[in-house]
């Protein structure tokens, strides 16, 4: 009885491990910050890999929509360096995608300074972030209310 269960659990565990490993092979992306990406851009191996680019914001005023407002070209920045991005995906971009939005991009680096993104996540604006007092003053000044 006992050995049957040992065999059973080994089979189940092996199946799970197989699924996990093959799943990771199928869909994984290397997460890089903009700084890391641009530093390694010369590295040709990077061109073939799927990359998730995190922690960038859309440069204010850089979004150039196509005529149907579907697939834009835009620039992202980490505050110091910048990268041109073209969106090539099918889905409609999230509503939260706009100037200065915090975005996470998935896709490939096609040239040294050109990124093709087929997935764009834009930070959901649920007001969950605690803002400092300075931000308040800044925000209020901008709205001309302080």
């Amino acid at each position: 009885m006992r050995y049957k269960f040992v065999v059973g659990s080994v089979v189940v565990t092996a199946g799970l491990v197989f699924l996990l490993i093959s799943g990771v092979r199928q869909s994984s992306a290397r997460h890089l910050t903009l700084d890391m990406l641009l530093t390694q851009a010369a590295n040709s191996e990077l061109r073939d890999r799927r990359i998730q680019l995190g922690g960038c914001t859309v440069v204010d005023g850089s979004i150039q929509w196509d005529e149907y407002r579907h697939r834009p070209a835009f620039t992202v920045t980490d505050g110091e360096r910048a990268l041109q991005v073209r969106y090539t995906g099918n889905a409609v971009l999230p509503d939260t995608f706009r100037d200065k939005a915090l975005v996470v991009l998935e896709g490939r680096l096609t040239q040294a300074n050109q990124f093709e993104a087929d997935l764009v996540f834009a930070k959901c604006p649920s007001k969950y972030e605690g803002k400092s007092y300075d931000d308040h003053v800044e925000a209020l000044n901008k709205e001309g209310r302080s």
Binding site: L19, G23, Q26, S27, S28, R30, H31
Partner: peptide
């Protein structure tokens, strides 16, 4: 947790997306 684990063990942060979850 794959991004966290892969970074801790290999130094490379690897993320997996919806296809991973669906296939497993």
């Amino acid at each position: 947790l794959f991004p966290v684990l892969s970074e801790a063990f290999t130094g490379d942060k690897i993320t997996v997306g919806a296809p991973f979850f669906n296939s497993v």
